[in-house]
Design a protein around this nucleic acid. Structure first.
Lengths: 367, 367
DNA sequence: CCGCATGATGTAATCGATTACATCCACTTT
DNA sequence: AAAGTGGATGTAATCGATTACATCATGCGG
């Protein structure tokens, strides 16, 4: 494949132009890329036929196609994406927008996305917004400039809409898919888990074990996920005939540190709940740690449940009972839907993947 | 993973399709992108001047430049990357090749890379090799097709060289940078930490606390990092006047599971070491967990040290004493070096970033 | 006052693939 | 036999920005 030694059988100058470069780059071999013309010449057809042989094989005679494929194999031709893109107005690139690339939660999702895109011949560009409006604006422009064919949004809002609901750059004219965090008023496919049902299920699980006082450690107040999970928590209480007690709601923001704070909050109380439902594993881990350091045993004294099932949930001490999100599958699904859109197929407007309740050792019946 | 009892979901459907989205955008305005011509017309200059105003401002009169910028601001013009790329043979895209995107260790590095590339106006394309030679071949072709200007390799080898040392696709003709895992015979800049010095330091640290019997849990045998760290371990022993005992070397592969196995190995021994140096945090966590479950206390009975300082090292019980790798900075540095290369500047051939020894609670003096 | 250097700007070729349109050829239909 | 049909192929316009080269104005030295 790579043995691209020189092959100039015909005497006619294939290279008509003198590739003179101004720069004093005295490198070894410039190794000019194979162009469609070179393939055409070798296969003794026109460039149009080569192009068609690749894009619409059925419109080319069998012999011509064979000769073209042969020539391509011999030369190792790969179409120049810039040229192709310029003409056909497609980039075969997809933008993935997420709030924080270094967050563990996203990496497996990304992998699912990447896999699926790859198989369909698409590349993936990642945009880590990092809470920066400038970055967001840049990527909005980037997208508007036609640099990608579509985008998967993991950040919970459309471009340019971070502050005011009526952002300017909303008219991106390219297919979009929202993943994980639903985007309220956007008319784009949403891929997510059923947060409400999952939270409800965990709450009921705790109630069924006999817990009557179940605390809830929330996510950021405005967050879409948070709202759903909170609803699910209340659903679960209601279904278990338990009263809702606002004092049992501790506010957090999904981070480990906020879990630590929530733990300190609980420790400071005279009357502690027997179970705590944290809406992220990180918070659960931070909370468990704080409780343990204070001599409160988990789950003997207090049961703690998480949400997400990140890698370390299984390794934490005690191993965390939590809600498993099918992260890879979420990514795959979002990518599949986007590709369907890109290729003109119809797609469901909303897909909810199912979650699992994973029971480990951080939850037990109250004493 | 042992303790995970999986429970089936309640009666919710896998796919909950609510409504459908048509593929056709049915848009109001086609919103044809602004071209350089439009800007030129508005600014009453030629397209050449517009182009120059952006690329080489010093070659354009102040007034003309002002008019051009004004026109650009008014129209919201963004150059078409395909066209620019086609003509200038640059893509402003960098490929990042890594073995496993879902591995926690890489995400912060990626973030550092992304940040730096972004600031320099480059985009990032991620290639998760996933151990697949086909994927690797694809990306080699992708790269050869001129789809990216340069690449950062986190996978420890050049394209196409996974098996035989003399890979075919080595002649990529584009700037490359190796990050974290040095690539032995490649003549490209290497960005890494000083694995040997770090391992030595940790070993000496343990010895200074009074440990005489320090076990070593290794990475995969052929791994470059492993070799360096192993050398460092022996350096540390020597510097502390401790003998090297092959029995104290337990083989692992950086995964959590191999840490668990290493733990079982140690538990089975009649005579246990007083300290264990694991060459990854994941292994250390798996090992600690196994020891704890067996009633062996860390650090009272056995001290355990890790390597990497991943997020959960600080949260583990006990919090892990480990070697901190400046991951974000590693990414930033690699990106900076690559950009320097891309822009024709000279770069150091090898950069070693400093590591820190983080002392937490998993290590103490032996009793 | 002429010629030349310098700097600003315009003109048009160019990058490489796609694709609308034209052409050609071998058959079929009337 | 003339006209029509459809499949295969070629020709050349096209996508939008960059940039080599041409042009023009200005200023300076001789």
């Amino acid at each position: 494949m790579g043995a691209s030694v020189k092959q100039g059988p015909e005497g006619q100058g294939i290279m008509d132009e003198v590739g003179r470069t101004g720069a004093a780059q005295a490198d070894d071999a410039p190794a000019r890329a194979v162009r469609i013309q070179d393939v055409a010449r070798l296969a003794e057809v026109s460039t149009a036929t080569v192009s068609r042989a690749l894009a619409t094989p059925e419109r080319v005679s069998v012999e011509a196609r064979a000769r073209v494929l042969e020539a391509i194999a011999r030369t190792g031709y790969v179409p120049n994406p810039a040229a192709r893109s310029l003409r056909s107005q497609k980039t075969y690139m997809v933008l993935v927008v997420l709030p924080d690339l270094s967050n563990t939660f996203f990496s497996k999702i990304l992998r699912g996305i990447e896999e699926t895109l790859f198989e369909a011949g698409y590349g993936m560009i990642i945009s880590d917004l990092d809470g920066s409006p400038e970055k967001e604006a840049h990527f909005a422009a980037f997208t508007a400039a036609g640099r990608v064919d579509g985008a998967i949004l993991l950040n919970g809002h459309l471009f340019g809409q971070s502050r005011d609901g009526k952002g300017s750059a909303a008219k991106l004219n390219i297919p979009l898919v929202a993943l994980c965090e639903a985007i309220p008023d956007a008319d784009i496919p949403q891929i997510e888990i059923d947060n409400r049902a999952a939270a409800r299920r965990m709450t009921q699980h705790l109630a069924q074990l006999g817990h009557r006082s179940i605390a809830y450690v929330s996510g950021p107040a405005q967050n879409v996920l948070e709202r759903e999970r909170f609803r699910g928590y209340r659903d679960g209480l209601r279904a278990s005939a338990l009263p809702f007690d606002p004092d049992l709601v501790v506010s957090g923001d999904y981070t480990l540190e906020s879990g630590v704070r929530a733990g300190e909050d609980l420790l400071a109380r005279a009357k502690r709940p027997t179970a705590v439902f944290c809406t992220s594993d990180e918070m659960a881990i931070g909370l468990v740690r704080t409780l343990s350091s204070a001599g409160v045993r988990v789950p003997e004294d207090i049961s703690v449940a998480g949400f997400d099932d990140i890698e370390f949930a299984a390794v934490a001490q005690p191993a965390l009972t939590t809600i498993h999100q099918p992260r890879r599958e979420l990514g795959q699904t979002a990518a599949t839907v986007l590709i369907d859109l890109l290729q003109g197929r119809t797609t469901p407007k909303r897909i909810r993947l199912k979650t699992d309740l994973i029971t480990r050792n951080s939850v037990s019946s109250p004493r």
